[in-house]
Design a protein around this nucleic acid. Structure first.
Lengths: 265, 265
DNA sequence: CGCCCGCTTGACCCATGTCAACGTCGGTGG
DNA sequence: CCACCGACGTTGACATGGGTCAAGCGGGCG
């Protein structure tokens, strides 16, 4: 514990969120962790809020790892309608294998200022070649990302406005908790109501009304950019939120026994 | 051409749709194709219409390859609402890497009677180990599947009922064309209006009205289970359908030069 | 200090849902 | 061979969730 704490302090500005996320799936050895750190600190980039990280039509050159800040994947129709397709939180990778494709069919933009690591395809290959456990963990993260996308399909297709917003808030909160970015029952939510609308297929006006309703019923406390969920179970119930699609139950813990590396540094 | 034709005749009941699909991305050698055939003919299963291939909560044991027939991925909410998350057409693989996860967070069911190949994880690994070009092509297919899921998010979030149905019909037609299951401007569409509604987040009544409208404007001809699209461009325009997300432009053609195997048998 | 972005609210409207009845066709058992 | 049945498609009347438009408000920042 103390070792981990020292490690954390030492790596401020490093990919601790990614490591923490992957450790929801399996335990990483010190050398696994070191490899992730090495890979993710080679080329770091800073972007302001509301900038494109990569645009539709671009040829993907490398994998982007969000170290700090929020971003989203989005797609814009010709007449201006915009759909937010997913949110990227600290520790999230944008498309680990995207270079197989010739060009991006959508864009990724920042919400807040973002610090990210650009990981070249060769670095990615080296990392996975040398660390099978990381490979497994990255597979898990890829599959969970796909599961989230499927759940959004359900969200948009079947749920009411109230359920959609509630569901999204549950998901974001639980994902943030997984990377250590919650404090008790609260977290930051640096997203405007327009953006919530673009993610849930609702107008900003309706988002506002739904948020009022969630507030009035005591299911959320939302002031400025801070969200609190006093009773997560209750919100989950209202939103028909079933956490299983996030696959958080240490699916890869059988891997813990496969390597005899010591866990502490 | 003649060789290919003979090959096709010989492999009726074999994974010709998958091969054809992968060859939209890259050219496969005869040995590549043979390896796919060997892998996909070890264990073949038949199912009737309206049966689950795999249910929510099941532990995934193998990859399912649809050889013939239609299926869909779906998720059911507790109160009975059902969302169809994607359609599987002949040549489609259900989750090539799903065994990393402990259990399914959704179900896959048949629409028509289905013939499928069960591919064990070890066979899958052997196939990709021995055939890097197939590995690349499977990557492409995985990424396209993810892109389709994202496009469905846009479909449900931003498009009107008419656009949603139009978009879905364009997608299905073009995917079917890619595996050789269209005849001129028409194809089979063995899907009820209720199912179309569950896929697009519309009621069956509204689906019916939208279909009437598409028929009346001459954009589709739909009688029984046969769909014709006299002017695909026109339907695409109405549905705001941009084909780029299907990544059909032979992204992997640079691989054609990497191996000097003869293409004909 | 003032402006602009984001939030809030009210009035009104429309796309789509719901309910209910009826039509049609293919299959099946008597 | 016919009668029935169930699944699917179609249509009309009516209800409603959520959209649109417009105005006002509040607070952070240049």
């Amino acid at each position: 514990m103390l070792v981990w704490l020292r490690f954390r302090v030492a790596v401020v500005g490093m990919p601790q969120h990614l490591i923490r996320k992957l450790e929801q799936f399996t335990r990483l050895s010190a050398s696994n962790r070191q490899a992730v750190v090495n890979t993710a600190t080679q080329k770091v980039r800073f972007l302001g809020a509301h900038q494109d990280i990569i645009s539709e039509g671009d040829a993907p050159e490398h994998v982007n790892l969000i170290l700090e800040g929020w971003a989203y994947r989005y797609k814009q129709l010709e007449d201006g309608r915009r759909q937010i397709i997913s949110f990227f939180l600290p520790g999230d990778l944008c498309d680990p294998h995207v270079f197989v494709l010739r060009e991006m069919d959508h864009a990724i933009g920042t919400i807040t200022p973002v610090r990210l690591a650009e990981i070249h395809r060769d670095q990615m290959l080296r990392l996975t070649d040398e660390h099978p456990r990381i490979t497994q963990a990255l597979w898990w993260e890829t599959l969970v990302t796909a599961a989230i996308q499927r759940e959004w399909t359900v969200n948009l297709g079947q749920r009411t406005g109230l359920e959609r917003i509630g569901h999204l808030l549950c998901e974001l909160f639980i994902r943030l908790r997984g990377v250590g970015l919650t404090e008790g029952d609260s977290c930051l939510l640096p997203v405007t109501q327009v953006e919530l609308g673009d993610a849930t297929g609702l107008s900003n006006v309706h988002v506002n009304r739904v948020l009022q309703e969630l507030r009035a019923s005591g299911l959320i406390v939302l002031r400025g950019k801070r969200l609190s969920i006093p009773d997560l179970r209750a919100l989950q119930a209202v939103a028909q939120f079933n956490v299983n699609y996030l696959h958080l139950d240490r699916e890869g813990r059988h891997l813990d026994a496969n390597e005899s590396e010591r866990v502490s540094a």
